[in-house]
Design a protein around this nucleic acid. Structure first.
Lengths: 157, 157
DNA sequence: TTACGTGCAAACGTTTTGCACAAAC
DNA sequence: GTTTGTGCAAAACGTTTGCACGTAA
């Protein structure tokens, strides 16, 4: 069974995975939207598109895909898993109102950042860590929520 | 019921909470260790110290304490809640081997960092976000795990 | 005496797993 | 025909809640 788009099939087979219907739908959705769905959200969106699948199949394939490195996986601030079409190390910009997030790069001197202790007694130990990387989570308000806040303010005023 | 140390009692009452035995033990442990326990880990450590409590009481009080702003709460990469004696915004340095983490400040130009789009088609939307803050998660190898890796290398060689 | 804290047990939501059947190699 | 994928149902796990009892204001 081949996927609708050859791009999807290639990305799966390149990682040694068969292009099954469930995997094609999952990867196709992520490639198309760049969203960071939870399994439940993904199920809803697939159902909405007339491409439903069982919850077990979804979880099983999300595990396979992320273990194979086809998609990225991380845990959101609510403790629920989310999946990302970007697998390389990158950063996120998160909306403080609705929680939506966008994949971003960092423009600026990320290497110049260095951790220093909050507690004086940690200074000795901290010096003996080997620091290897840094991941930034930007937060702010997305365009949609700026509009909604506006409307709310107008309604109150 | 007062806590062993007046520091603990004060920090609780200052936030409008009674200094009950369970709360004194929880806050006392965090103040003493600066660790980032999960509820389960905290239960083990309290039991080890001869200060056990029921799992429900622990969860109920962790919720109260974090809602009152006495302690901080966040979700670790495994999706399990963790608690932090530092409540002000700060950053973490996480060990890639054992997962232990240390509270840190950032030394360097955090304000100079700016998010830029990974996907070209996001550029327009990204420009309309209002970016308000950034949280950094440093990763590396802690002193203990550097030793263990050493030992392992020696054993293999 | 009234409000609050504690602990047991049951419920809950997310995720994993055992198993039977179907599809692909 | 052997391996792999799918889906149902049940289990597992972290977490929350209802309730009864104990403790403190």
């Amino acid at each position: 069974m081949a996927c609708d788009r050859p791009e999807v099939t290639e990305r799966l087979t390149a990682h040694g995975l068969r292009a099954t219907p469930a995997r094609c739908r999952i990867l196709g959705l992520l490639l198309e939207t760049h969203e960071h769905y939870t399994p439940e959200e993904m199920l809803d969106e697939l159902r909405r598109r007339g491409e439903p699948m069982s919850i077990a199949t979804l979880y099983q394939n999300l595990a396979k895909l992320s273990e194979a490195g086809v998609i990225g996986r991380f845990v959101g601030p609510d403790g629920v898993s989310r999946y990302d079409v970007v697998t390389e190390p990158h950063h996120h910009l998160v909306c403080r109102v609705c929680g939506r997030m966008v994949d971003v790069r960092v423009k600026g001197p990320l290497e110049d950042l260095a951790p220093e202790p909050i507690f004086a007694e940690d200074a000795g130990e901290l010096a003996r860590w080997r620091v290897k990387g840094a991941k930034v989570e930007f937060s702010g308000v997305c365009p949609d929520c700026q509009l909604h806040l506006h409307r709310k303010e107008q309604r109150i005023a």
